[in-house]
Design a protein around this nucleic acid. Structure first.
Lengths: 141, 141
DNA sequence: TAGATACTTGATCCATTTAGTCAAGTATTG
DNA sequence: CAATACTTGACTAAATGGATCAAGTATCTA
């Protein structure tokens, strides 16, 4: 579970959309890239992935933008990382199946699973809630 | 904590040396690459790193090879991964310090720490012991 | 209906990392 | 002296991650 910039950006963007979720107003890409330091066209690429995952929907034309199409509480950081990140190919050492090899594979797997557990316990809603706390916007909702 | 082939190979090699540790006989590179499916010159490169970490010593000349210079029980998988793996640069998002950004950084860090915990709880000695069990060599020592 | 806004798509590029190789050299043993 | 085996440094090749561009399409507003 390496957290790439892609995963980080994706989560930031989703957080932004989650904060603006209640109103259901589309948020333009430029608004997201402006607030966080995300390179423009790169975010577009990431949003494409998020859309094909069914988590955001896009509205074209003027006044268009992106909008969350799932409940923030239903989306965990693990799911985001799995969809946006790379396929995770933890399968070396197929060649020789020595006991040492197998034992190690299991340990690597256990370590990986531990970090996945952590990510699966945090939802987008929690991130958004705590993020808005910091910005003192909580009280205006 | 991505487990690269480099880390996997390094641990396999150290395990091999740990098994042969009691006798203190040097083990040639070829013996290690033979038993596990490790590409020859690549392992040499890895062993160089292990030597500069002070974990193995090399004996030149005929009958030479590599030998463990630490106790297997004192070496954890985490230490191996840290020395052999890449430097781990988890520092994106320095640009904007939004609350969302900070929260995420903490969560990524927590996930990473969880997997490090797992790796820190397994020692080379345990791997070696269980590996020899499988090979039924335990009884001949 | 024109024009501005904003998403869509596909191709492309660059830098870094990872994996793996080669060759010339040095030390040790028998 | 010859065989064995480590030493060193440079080098290549493929994959991945990060990022950009340009031409196109849809929508709203004046």
């Amino acid at each position: 579970m390496t957290i790439s910039a892609r995963i980080h950006y994706a989560t930031l963007a989703l957080t932004e959309l989650a904060i603006r979720h209640p109103g259901r107003t589309p948020v333009a890409v430029r608004e997201i890239t402006g607030r966080h330091g995300i390179p423009g066209p790169f975010l577009v690429q990431i949003l494409r992935t998020l859309r094909s995952a069914g988590w955001v929907e896009s509205i074209r034309g003027s006044q268009g933008g992106y909008r969350l199409s799932v409940e923030p509480a239903d989306l965990t950081l693990l799911e985001i990382a799995d969809v946006v990140g790379c396929p995770e190919s933890n399968c070396f050492g197929e060649a020789t199946e020595t006991p040492a090899n197998q034992m190690l594979q299991e340990t690597w797997e256990a370590a990986n699973e531990a970090s996945r557990q952590v990510l699966s316990r945090t939802t987008l809603a929690e991130i958004a809630a705590r993020a808005t706390h910091g910005e003192q916007v909580m009280f205006y909702i």
